[in-house]
Design a protein around this nucleic acid. Structure first.
Length: 270
DNA sequence: GTCCATGTTCTTTA
DNA sequence: CTAAAGAACATGGA
């Protein structure tokens, strides 16, 4: 579920409690959420200190004082929460880590998320696209020009650009005034510039409102995101466009629901 | 029972 | 061979 704004908000809420904290205990309650399979995560973390926590794409990267790293991906329903070690355990809590006097809990009913050990050497970056908040228009244009897919599908490709998901792609395309079925490699330079600006604007706004909560997403303090009510198209099928009152349309592109305003996002350049 | 879901990866098709 | 499309993964809510 979580896309860049939600993942960044989780990192922001974890950092003040965990940076520099010594790991006092680790409990893997369901070992199949750990990759590589069979890796002894509890042993690897024992008595280490958390040097840094950062976001890359939709990944939450933990760096240990040993120089080793692992990342957590929340998938669709994953949560990382900070709680007292004696608080009741929610269902589907797969891993707990005690550090800095609190307990970090990884909970994920659908288990599309997980924890990946990187070690000290592997950068784990190969095949990850650039960050949407800092990509430059020329780089975005170059990458879009290499695919014949429709723009909606291209922006969901984490190798093309890392961090956007279904909500923010729809919102950014609305803000840019681009129909989701335009071919990525046929956008004009002006359209790509608009898209580049729209992506950054939508993400920054979402970050200010601590992300979107559709159902499952919570930050590390259990707080829901408040950007949801500011969505202009996502999950607003049939409702009037905030700009022109035309009903928002929902279609399916690449097996993902897609929302847009047929008036503000024409299929042809006007 | 049905359909749908903030994601990714593997398999099949063109 | 490669890019794109489709299926699969697991669970729960409407």
């Amino acid at each position: 579920m979580p896309e860049l704004p939600e993942v960044q908000t989780v990192v922001n809420t974890l950092l003040p409690r965990l940076r520099g904290a010594v790991i006092a205990a680790v409990c893997v309650r369901r070992s199949d959420v750990i990759s590589p399979a069979g890796f002894d995560f509890e042993k690897a973390l024992a008595a280490r200190r958390i040097a840094q926590i950062a976001r890359r794409g939709k990944r939450i990267i933990f760096q240990l004082d040993s120089g080793e790293r692992f990342f957590i991906h929340l998938g669709m329903t994953g949560r990382l929460t900070l709680q007292a070690a004696d608080a009741p355990l929610a269902p589907h809590t797969h891993v707990t880590i005690d550090a800095g006097g609190v307990q970090v809990r990884f909970t994920d009913p659908r288990r599309f998320g997980g924890i990946w050990w990187l070690g000290a050497d592997a950068d784990g970056e190969h095949a990850m696209g650039p960050e949407p908040l800092t990509i430059r228009p020329a780089a975005l244009a170059r990458r879009l020009a290499r695919t014949k897919r429709v723009i909606k599908s291209a922006l969901l490709d984490q190798q093309l650009i890392a961090g956007l998901g279904n909500i923010y792609v729809d919102e950014a395309l609305f803000t840019a005034g681009l129909h989701p079925q335009l071919r990525a490699d046929r956008l004009s330079a002006a359209q790509v510039r608009r898209l580049n600006r729209a992506i950054k604007q939508v993400l920054r706004r979402a970050l200010r409102h601590r992300g979107s909560t559709l159902r499952d997403y919570r930050d590390a303090d259990g707080k829901a995101g408040e950007f949801t009510r500011l969505h202009r198209v996502y999950d607003r099928a049939g409702k009037p466009c905030t700009h022109c009152k035309t009903p928002i349309v929902r279609i399916v592109i690449g097996q993902r629901s897609t929302h847009f305003c047929p008036n503000c996002q024409p299929a042809r350049e006007v």
